[in-house]
């Protein structure tokens, strides 16, 4: 069964940004905080706690519907596969994203998009993130209800 990313326990987040740093380095080959498929930030100052903004693996994927070149293709279970060689950098994907998490790189013009690969999950020291079973077509909307994982040994 395909898996999708869910931020299941952001109350546990310590704001270390290891998920973003891991994604930028290992998935997007970038030394940055910004070229990441997931974005953690405070809810307005560090006293307010943290939120994660990430691809919700929509089905249908609105970014794929908006893509005129086939660079974005609907992925089974939700989310997209992205092929940069087909991308003409029009930015329609980013404008179509209902949660504004597709970032268009200012320098290259290419979108930075979550591939639902789960790399970020492996870098979260506090079990805030998980790859959960994608909801079935018959039972939409059940993603994110998987049991809470144990905090990994530190």
């Amino acid at each position: 069964m395909p898996k999708i990313l869910r931020a299941i326990a952001m109350e546990r987040c310590i704001g270390c940004y290891s998920c973003m740093l891991g994604c930028a380095r290992l998935v997007h080959n970038s030394l940055s905080l910004i070229r990441s498929g997931i974005h953690v930030r405070s809810l307005g100052g560090l006293t307010a706690g943290f939120e994660a903004r990430y691809c919700l693996a929509c089905r249908p994927a609105f970014c794929a519907l908006a893509c005129p070149t086939g660079a974005f293709v609907q992925r089974e279970g939700g989310g997209v596969c992205y092929r940069e060689r087909l991308c003409i950098r029009c930015g329609h994907c980013a404008r179509a994203c209902p949660v504004n998490v597709i970032l268009v790189d200012e320098e290259t013009g290419f979108p930075v998009v979550c591939l639902q690969c789960g790399s970020c999950v492996n870098f979260c020291p506090h079990g805030c993130l998980a790859m959960v079973d994608a909801p079935s077509k018959e039972q939409p909307g059940t993603a994110g209800t998987a049991g809470e994982p144990d905090i990994k040994q530190r």
Partner: peptide, 26 residues
Amino acid sequence: EGSFSLPHGDYKKVYKKIYRKITTSG
């Protein structure tokens, strides 16, 4: 807000190794 290219070579491997050492060594 900037982004930079990764160092060549073993960088990713060493990054993962150090991260694991910090989070698993106790």
